[in-house]
Amino acid sequence: MAEADARPPQAGEPISEQEALRRLRQSEDSSQQYYGAWWLGRMRSQHPEAVPLLQQALRQRRPRDSGAGVEENAVARNAARALGKLAPAAQAAIPDLLDTLQDADDKLREAAARALGELAASEAIEALCQRLASGPTVAGAQQANSTRLVEPCEALLKALGDIGVNEPRVLAVVKPFLAHERPVIRSAAARTLLQLSGEACWGELLVDLLDHPQLPVRRAALMDLGTAGWRPGFKAIAATRAENSLKLMALRGLVEQGNGDPGDEALLACMDLLL
């Protein structure tokens, strides 16, 4: 079933799994590889060739194919994203993703970190912590000629939360980012601490961000509360000045990821009112 949500860069006719594998396997046209990798992740392909081909594509760095309309490392980035979506079948690719976490391209590190989180790869904890260890003023500093940070902090922090191993060394690395100048990074750090410890203070911090004057921050805090499934936040979520679509996604997270009070019936009643 083809849904039109994430838009492929090379939109065209719907393709088959065999065609997606063929496009990824060839190496003449990197825009075709880009689309093939995206397709396999989007359709959650179970084909035995999918993961090995994506691992191979992940190693394909900097093709410098000027004129094909594909940015450098774009194929590798899409391969990393697809491997994350194929979790848990993509366990075999964890060592490749760990290598990728050391790449010079921060966008590629970002894609690798997200995939490692989706794979719940506890092997990645050490490397993720190392990337963040220099804290918000070094790893979290803005790059000289870009608005991006030195490290893809949001993805690195969230991966630690998704992996979900509550250890003092992880908490020690994450906590300083609660003081990052960007509220979206503070939100990511609070979400991770909430996932790891379940302590209400981190949920309350996210609820405070739901009242931030900037809409993108309120949206980020909504998604972070939903991912962490923090049920006590349900009324604050419903009252946030943001689109009902996002509030419904966040409340779905509370129903599916959370437990305890309030129970399902109160959460579902809250969702009904937002339709």
Partner: peptide, 9 residues
Amino acid sequence: DTPPVVQRR
């Protein structure tokens, strides 16, 4: 294709 939240509702 049916997430738990839809099933529960």
